[in-house]
Amino acid sequence: MRKGLTLVEVLVAMGLLVVLLGVAVRYFASTAELSRETQAKSELQDRVRMVMQVVSGDLQMAGARYWNSGTQNRAFVLPAGKVLTGTNGGAKDTLGLYYVTSLRAQGQACRRVAYGFQGDTLRRSDVNATPTSGSDCTEPPTAFQPLADGILALDIRYLCSDGTQKDTPDCGTGAYPRSTLVEVVGYSLTPVRSPGPATLTTVSGEQVSCPQGRACYALRQEVLMPNLKPLP
């Protein structure tokens, strides 16, 4: 009567087991890599959307000068010629603006906000410009803090009330920036197997190059600035 397995049968069984283990390892490794890549792209989109939300919120508030809380109402005077400033840095523009917000106490209502780059890190400054007395907002020193890494572009195109488009907020005599076209471009902080396009063209026609092996994501939005319309 036959007992046990022959050597050939054992070797065949071991071979099949090795093949099955190899397939399983490749499957789980591929699944893990796909999950990591999906997470990297999702984080990239969230980061770009966050930047757009913060920049858009500041631009919408630019020039607001009234503070209200219940029955209290105070009008601030914003620095002339400095309510909205900016430079054309190609795809990496700078931005500075003043506004008054009722979301803060009266002693911190007047804010001076600025944006600038350090490499591919977008930085933001939000400092108190409320005077201790009087109604004029002050000019405090800028204090930048990192807002987001891996940002290739913060490109701003200013749409003037006379129909022209500018790369800076200066619309000329008799006109003012009624809105802006804002584009934010970012790249994934970790490599991915399916990278984004090699180059992207921003709202002002600037070309930015996506780092090799990284996913890129661009978001464009028009932002209205109702507080910049001159008072009659």
Results as ranks from 00 to 15, higher is better:
D46V: 05
R47T: 13
R47H: 00
V48N: 01
V48K: 00
M50E: 08
V51L: 05
M52V: 10
Q53M: 02
Q53V: 03
S56F: 09
S56Q: 03
D58M: 10
M61I: 00
M61W: 12
A62D: 10
R65A: 14
Y66V: 14
S69V: 01
G70A: 12
T71V: 12
T71I: 10
Q72W: 09
Q72C: 02
N73V: 04
R74A: 03
A75S: 14
A75Y: 13
A75W: 11
F76C: 01
L78H: 00
A80T: 13
G81N: 07
G81T: 10
G81K: 03
K82R: 15
V83W: 04
T85L: 11
G86E: 11
T87M: 07
T87N: 13
G89K: 10
G89F: 06
G90N: 06
A91I: 08
D93Q: 00
D93T: 03
L97M: 15
Y98T: 06
Y98A: 11
S102H: 08
L103S: 15
R104A: 14
A105Q: 12
A105V: 02
G107S: 15
A109D: 03
C110K: 09
R111I: 04
V113N: 04
A114P: 01
Y115H: 04
Y115T: 06
G119S: 07
G119Y: 08
G119A: 08
D120Y: 15
D120N: 15
T121I: 09
R123M: 14
R124E: 11
S125T: 04
D126R: 07
D126P: 00
V127L: 05
N128K: 07
N128W: 06
N128L: 07
T130M: 04
P131V: 08
G134C: 05
S135N: 14
T138A: 11
T138K: 09
P140G: 08
P140L: 08
A143C: 00
F144I: 04
Q145C: 00
Q145R: 10
L147I: 09
A148H: 07
A148F: 05
D149E: 13
D149A: 10
I151T: 08
I151F: 11
L152Q: 12
L154N: 05
L154I: 09
D155A: 02
D155K: 06
I156M: 10
R157T: 06
R157Y: 05
Y158G: 03
L159Y: 10
C160W: 12
K166N: 13
D167E: 12
P169E: 11
G172M: 12
